[in-house]
């Protein structure tokens, strides 16, 4: 598997650290309530199809990335800098 880092270009997946669902970008407010926090930390879909995950190019430039990929075909559709995605969420 290869991931196209927006900074470094196409790289072997060995250079990347996998964290999990990109929902981690949307940290709830402290008083958002148990359900919201539960959903943020624990409740995950397991789609046959598109997912958005957080990876870090730890063995490269160090950037955190949002990778959109397909769990069925394994195609990687998009790789974005997490900082850009987070800024756009604001």
């Amino acid at each position: 598997m290869r991931i196209e880092c927006p900074i470094c270009g196409s790289r072997d997946r060995r250079e990347f650290y996998y964290r999990g669902d990109a929902i981690a970008l949307a940290r709830p407010a402290p008083d958002a309530g148990d359900d919201v926090w539960d959903a943020y930390l624990h409740l995950r879909d397991n789609p046959a199809g598109e997912t958005r995950d957080l990876w870090q190019h730890e063995g490269g430039c160090g950037a955190w990335l949002v990778v959109t990929r397909d769990t069925v075909t394994h195609a990687v559709h998009a790789v974005e800098l997490a900082s850009d995605v987070k800024r756009a969420m604001a």
Binding site: Y17, R19, A24, L25, R27, L54, Q56, E58, G62, A63, W64, L81, A82, S83, D84, K86, R87, A90
Partner: peptide
Amino acid sequence: MRHLEFVTQCLHPE
């Protein structure tokens, strides 16, 4: 280090 980078890039890029 990874955690701090996560916080600065993913939670508070500003």
